[in-house]
Design a protein around this nucleic acid. Structure first.
Length: 645
RNA sequence: GCCCACAUAGCUCAGUAGGUAGAGCGCGUCCUUGGUAAGGACGAGGUCAGCAGUUCAAUUCUGCUUGUGGGCUCCA
């Protein structure tokens, strides 16, 4: 019998295992790093007998994405073994691999402590040292039930009942056996690079009505070197954390006295924000939007009409004025609809595109707040497009283009998904179908890949969500495009068509940055605080060598200020090296050093934060460099912008 | 909201077997006039997050509250 291994034919015995076949077909060194076998799309344990229909087999190496997944999953089992050994009354639940690692959820009478984690990790190391074999057996549903019932593993019983399979595979190593689809590494000795990271609460099956379990997270890699590299990366990422940089660069803070989830913008941070908002606002106008503004609070019955009261109440703040109930706006759409409704619209007036940097308040659960990325009060670059059905496609495409342009400007990588109807929602099934179809068609016509996120739409309509990652790899939603047939109906929005009849416009809710706060948080992490010249709060800093240059430095300062360049001067009685260091830590793009030489020449000596050193330049030349650096990103993106004071 | 952890000077952190606290940086004054990542001296600065309780005595122990961090659930 012959089988192809990694492209070359190998003779094998009738009942050979996958491991034996791969060992035959690969060099000794290669085989050492094989975790499982791959036959077609199926992953098989090395101990599994080669299936009769398998004609070619590929090795899955430890450092491949699939291999790492196996290693992490197996490490989760290894951890469960250790936990059961140290805490026999703990009940096991599920333990999958996740990005960069794994977790396992346990039900135990007391919380695990950091010391417990250390003990667990040591126990895991012992098991690795013992190099126990992983083995798999397939049993009937009844046998599986009997086995886990005897062990008191109630959660496993629940899983068996839910899966409703005829047979189940059970993976064991040493004393530990777990209901599991597999596959796994052959021996515990292959798991040589892992670390337990933290404990967290997690609901059984992700449902907050269920019991809360204890989840232990860990990371696992193919080699200790990879593990070390990953842990180092984590450390580096922490340095870019926007919360840390926000303090270091004096951009913003959160004030305990003022309440959770609400940012306070310091002078530098507020300036960065203002520039971003200014750019986005001007760009909206160029793209055919009109600026509007609505109030912060609207009468409660309006929120009832819109369905917010019914579907979004727990996220809203309410207040009372003159015995009249009001709701603080969590979204801007209501005001925009009222503005649309101020007069009778003609089909010629459409589309109406209303843009507002709207401040919204949402009562987010206390546990979800996270720096600028998840707050209770934030500003959306929000717009509502009211258009005729025949205009819908072009409008969506226009928004997608704008999203692409903005993300491109910052060189963001992002993922897109279409979110469908959630449980709590309003509107007819047909409208939902129509709206989803419109979004899909637009995405497909632009040729963008997308995922479907079932049940995650807004309560009034489906949406395209654009997600960007933070420094720790967590994804955050930024842009959103939502098609809505329902709210125009609820507010009886109409326009007079060519036929002289009243028609219903379609509404597109959309935000490009999403939340200014969140977007800035991600920008801070993306640039590690070293903002591009166009929105750096301070673009250049003058550093004098001694106070003899003070007068000239002040003239230079004035010169650049008049040019609209954001510049500061460090005239303190300190050494140059000290001033350079400080400006470098402030991540200021340009430093202008002024000593006697420069005064004499009427020049500045330019130092760039990247380490480049253009040297002695005239004031005009230096200004040109900055202006160039500030406008270049827009030229590259086919746009134009400059902030002026 | 739930689980766990944490909260000491503007920042980063030490510390107290329960006897009201310390460093570095920053800040102020003075000396130093120094050419590309930290010159020196002196000084100011803290209801040890808040409120209760235990105690002769609480920053330290206990409880609650507030806030923060890591997750879960939920969402821009």
């Amino acid at each position: 019998m012959q089988i192809e291994v990694a492209g070359k034919p190998v003779d094998i015995a009738e009942d050979a295992s996958c491991g034996e076949v791969l060992k035959e077909g690969l060099s000794k060194k290669q085989f050492k790093n094989v975790v499982v076998a791959k036959c077609g799309e199926t992953l098989l344990d090395l101990t599994t007998t080669v299936p009769a229909d398998c004609t070619s087999m590929e090795p899955v190496f430890a450092d491949s994405p699939e291999g790492l997944d196996i290693i992490r999953h197996s490490t989760a089992h290894l951890m469960a073994e250790a936990v059961k050994k140290l805490f026999p009354t703990a009940k096991v639940t599920i333990g999958p691999s996740v990005e960069n690692g794994f977790y396992y959820d346990f039900d135990y009478e007391r919380p695990f402590t950091p010391e417990d984690l250390e003990a667990i990790e040591q126990e895991m190391q012992r098991s690795v040292g013992a190099d126990k074999d992983f083995s798999c057996r397939v049993v009937s549903a009844d046998e599986a039930r009997a086995e886990f019932k005897e062990q008191g593993e109630d959660y496993k019983l629940e899983l068996i009942d839910d899966l409703e399979e005829d047979n189940y595979s059970i993976y064991s190593h040493g004393e530990f056996a777990d209901l599991c689809r597999g596959p796994h590494v052959a021996r515990t000795g292959m798991l040589k690079a892992f670390k337990l990271l933290n404990v967290a609460g997690a609901y059984w099956r992700g449902d907050e009505n269920n019991k809360q379990l204890q989840r232990i997270y860990g990371t696992a890699w193919a080699t200790p070197k990879d593990l070390k590299k990953y842990l180092h990366q984590l450390e580096e990422a922490k340095k870019r954390d926007h919360r840390k940089l926000g303090t270091q660069l004096d951009l913003f803070s959160f004030q305990e006295a003022g309440g959770a989830g609400m940012a306070y913008w310091h002078p530098k941070g507020a300036l960065v924000r203002t520039i971003l908002e200014d750019f986005v606002t001007k760009e909206q106008i160029k793209r055919g939007y009109e600026l509007v503004r609505g109030p912060q609070i609207l009468k409660r019955d309006l929120w009832e009409t819109s369905g917010h009261y019914e579907n979004y109440r727990e996220n809203m703040y309410f207040t009372e004025i003159d015995e009249q109930a009001y709701g603080v706006k969590p979204m801007n759409c209501l005001a925009h609809m009222l503005i649309y409704n101020r007069k009778l619209m003609s089909y010629r007036d459409l589309p109406q595109r209303y843009f507002e940097l709207g401040v919204v308040h949402r009562h987010e659960k206390s546990g979800v707040l996270h720096g600028l990325l998840r707050v209770r009060s934030f500003t959306q670059d929000d717009a509502h497009i009211l258009c005729r059905p025949d205009q819908l496609q072009d409008e969506i495409k226009g928004v997608i283009k704008w999203v692409q342009d903005l993300m491109g400007l910052f060189d963001f990588t992002y993922s897109m998904e279409i979110s469908t109807r959630p449980e709590k929602s309003i509107g007819s099934d047909e409208d939902w179908e129509r709206a989803i179809k419109a979004l899909k068609e637009a995405m497909e016509s632009v040729g963008l890949p997308y995922e479907i996120n079932e049940g995650d739409g807004a309560f009034y309509g489906p949406k395209i969500d654009v997600k960007v990652r933070d420094c720790l790899g967590r994804e955050w939603q930024c842009s959103t495009i939502q098609v809505d047939f329902t709210l125009p109906e609820r507010f009886d929005l109409t326009y007079i068509g060519e036929d002289g009849e009243r028609h219903r416009p379609v509404m597109v809710h959309r935000a490009i940055m999403g939340s200014v706060e969140r977007f800035l948080g991600i920008l801070i992490e993306h640039y590690a605080g070293a903002f591009p010249v166009w929105f750096a709060p301070v673009q250049a800093k003058i550093l004098t060598v001694t106070d003899a240059q003070k007068d000239f430095a002040e003239k230079v300062l004035q010169f650049f200020r008049e040019k609209g360049i954001r510049i500061e001067a460090d005239l303190r009685n300190e050494k140059l090296g000290y001033k350079v260091r400080e400006a470098q830590l402030e991540k200021i793009p340009y430093m202008f050093v002024i000593g006697d030489k420069e005064v004499e020449a009427g020049c500045v000596n330019v130092r760039v934060r990247t380490g480049d050193d253009p040297g002695l330049l005239s004031l005009e030349e230096a200004a040109a460099i900055i202006e160039d650096a500030a406008t270049q990103p827009f030229k590259d993106g086919g746009m134009s912008y400059s902030f002026s004071t």
